[in-house]
């Protein structure tokens, strides 16, 4: 075999290896989901969603955890979206190139890489102890808000950057002020992109477990939270708790709860992708 034939052979072999690697990722994803469906689908019924947690696996439901997750999702959105979008607008439209903007830039990039459990330690000390919020929904939401802030900021900045500057020029030329231009032109034009980033960030928040454990969210809460100061549990923590129990019934429960959690995550991701595609088409 001469060297050209050898090289062609290597080329073909790598191609098959590449296809294999690509498919193995996807196949594993399918195996994961398939396995969990087999383990858990039969456990899901209306009672599973509306029942309170119990010591007996077959009587346990996810009601309190699901309500906790919804509370967390809503409060986190209320806190993180305004702050994140505002910070992004400042960085994209107002900030001048100086030491401060450089610092903000490095800082946000770094925050995005801080492990989520570290945010839990921050929340534990600042919100739970110093601000005496206790292990409440509010403390958990504040903690997760800080966690997803960098994600929202980065996504919003990308979306704002994609708006053609001609739109800005047109608005200024008609005598609009800076804020009017941002509020009436830039934000509507970048809305789809911002929405995509926000939904992806929130889907991340729904799946987070570790920081909420550190903040003190409970594995067993007898009632769904009624106000932001109540104690709470969330779906991932409920799942974690069930996985840690030896009885097989709880594993089934965990699988069933995972199906619900994955459903929420994938629906949120699907909506995000839908908005992204719709929004990208607008600028083509």
């Amino acid at each position: 075999m001469n060297s050209i034939q050898k090289n062609r052979l290597k080329d073909q072999l790598f191609k098959f290896w590449g296809i294999f690697c690509t498919l193995i990722g996807l196949v594993l994803l399918i195996v994961f989901i398939g396995d969990i469906l087999i383990d858990g689908i039969s456990r899901i019924d209306w009672g599973f969603i509306t029942d309170l947690p119990s010591r007996k696996a077959e009587k346990s439901g996810i009601y309190t955890a699901l309500m906790g997750s919804i509370w967390i999702l809503l409060l986190t959105s209320l806190i993180a979206i305004p702050v994140g979008v505002a910070a992004a607008i400042y960085l994209e439209e107002y900030s001048k190139k100086n030491w401060l903007s450089g610092l903000l830039e490095i800082n946000i990039s770094n925050l995005a890489g801080v492990p989520s459990i570290i945010y839990g330690l921050l929340g534990l000390e600042v919100f739970v102890r110093i601000m005496s919020l206790g292990a409440s929904v509010l403390a958990g939401s504040l903690t997760l808000s800080l966690l997803i802030l960098p994600i929202i900021i980065v996504a919003t900045r990308e979306a704002i950057k994609a708006v053609p500057s001609s739109i800005k020029d047109a608005s200024y030329a008609l005598g609009a002020s800076k804020w009017q231009t941002i509020w009436l032109q830039i934000l509507p034009a970048s809305g789809g992109g911002i929405l995509t980033g926000v939904i992806l960030a929130l889907s991340r928040a729904v799946g987070e477990t570790a920081p909420l454990i550190v903040v003190g969210a409970l594995a067993y809460v007898p009632f769904a939270p009624q106000n932001p100061m109540d104690e709470f549990s969330v779906l991932p923590i409920q799942i974690f708790n069930w996985i840690s129990r030896p009885q097989h019934g709880f594993i089934e429960n965990a699988a069933a709860a995972i199906i619900i959690l994955l459903l929420i995550t994938f629906i949120m991701n699907g909506i995000a992708v839908y908005f992204r595609n719709k929004w990208q088409q607008k600028w083509k």
């Binding site: 590449g18 690509t22 990722g25 996807l26 594993l28 994803l29 994961f32 396995d35 969990i36 383990d39 992806l200 889907s203 991340r204 729904v206 799946g207 987070e208 477990t209 570790a210 991932p236 799942i239 974690f240 996985i243 594993i251 965990a254 699988a255 995972i258 959690l261 994955l262 995550t265 994938f266 991701n269 992708v273």
Partner: peptide, 30 residues
Amino acid sequence: APRSFRKTVKPLLELLAAVPTVVYGFFALI
């Protein structure tokens, strides 16, 4: 890969990173 393949596969693979980690924990243990 052909462009169309790349465009479909990339977001699907990114779904791997979107799965909550507690789910992966379940998978590893069980």
